[in-house]
Design a protein around this nucleic acid. Sequence first.
DNA 1: GAATCCAATACAGTATTCTATATCACAACT
DNA 2: AGTTGTGATATAGAATACTGTATTGGATTC
Lengths: 196, 196
Amino acid sequence: MAYQSENLIAQAREIREASRVSQRALSERAGLTQSHISQIESGKMEPGLSSFIDLTRALDLEVMLVPKKLVPAVLGLVKAQATPDMHIHAGQPNDKRFARAERLVKKMKHLYGSSADLDRIEDTLRFLRRVNLRDQEMQLVRELIARLERYQASAQAAPVVRDIAQNLQRLRNSIAHPAPSEPRPAYSLDDGDADA
Amino acid sequence: MAYQSENLIAQAREIREASRVSQRALSERAGLTQSHISQIESGKMEPGLSSFIDLTRALDLEVMLVPKKLVPAVLGLVKAQATPDMHIHAGQPNDKRFARAERLVKKMKHLYGSSADLDRIEDTLRFLRRVNLRDQEMQLVRELIARLERYQASAQAAPVVRDIAQNLQRLRNSIAHPAPSEPRPAYSLDDGDADA
DNA sequence: GAATCCAATACAGTATTCTATATCACAACT
DNA sequence: AGTTGTGATATAGAATACTGTATTGGATTC
């Protein structure tokens, strides 16, 4: 099931990982079991409010209620403080990034001939561009694009390109088919979409 | 009961009352039952995280994760903007609309058994919810949902459901596989995190 | 006094969380 | 090869969230 809470949970997970706390260590501090935390983080179960609070408190976080209107302000506040030595130049808006990436792919197709992998990348980029990506997801995309740029002219570009294509597609699938729980109907093929 | 969540819940209740929204009205917008809300507010039961989020979102609030250190700052920010008379738009935000629709589908699956069409609708809704829809597109979705609500119990629901599923899927495909490269309004709502 | 709208409460049934314990596969390091 | 730490998973059972529906008593307003 696609839950409304996945953002919050993903955030908590990121912070846990960033602070190098293992699920086990956290479980002791928060008073939950490791298995429980694993299932929550992997989206296999939806925590109760109090479990979630326990979890976040153990990470030195507070759950707060903020008027929608103020969300950007708070976000700014938190972000400013959170990464004092993180040099993520927030410069380029995502949209431009995608535009550049698509141009790059086009150029590669033109130079080295088109391939199934390049086609896949192009297609997936076009898709991802339209979606609201979480920071974490955007980060992944950024990395993949950077890698593509780095290896574009390399001799062994082929396997790298394939890997990038696979990663992008995986991300895409995780967004397009976010439901891990339903008994998958037989008609749903593993990879592509049912679209036609 | 006296749990960690007492505060948050009390806060939510205060805001509900300040906005003069009855439990019943809120229950409809949040997709919970009035009885449920009453028990939550009176501390007789601890809501799940997602129930709580549904609740707060219906009150135009966001649940956010804030480093303990920054809590006073955020508190100040929120309080400064304190609500002289906050009232809630009658217009349902899209998010709520989707939540309701998904809930409806779930109910239908439960009542009449799940079908390929219902699965498809569920899947597609989950997808569309994540995407930036243009006004025109959102309008279509709204109409389709309204139709689903109207026909949910009808005798000839089946063909209607199928038609709705088809329409939704077509919309989805047009987004996932845009024919030409198209610009999109880059608009990032509430997804924020402090990245590691 | 009747009619509303409100919140609280009850109750039956289902679905899910949550605990506790254990295991597995995969790393990294000795 | 063995040890250790990681996260993912399995299973079984107790607890409880959640739905739906319905009723209650209180406060209003006509």
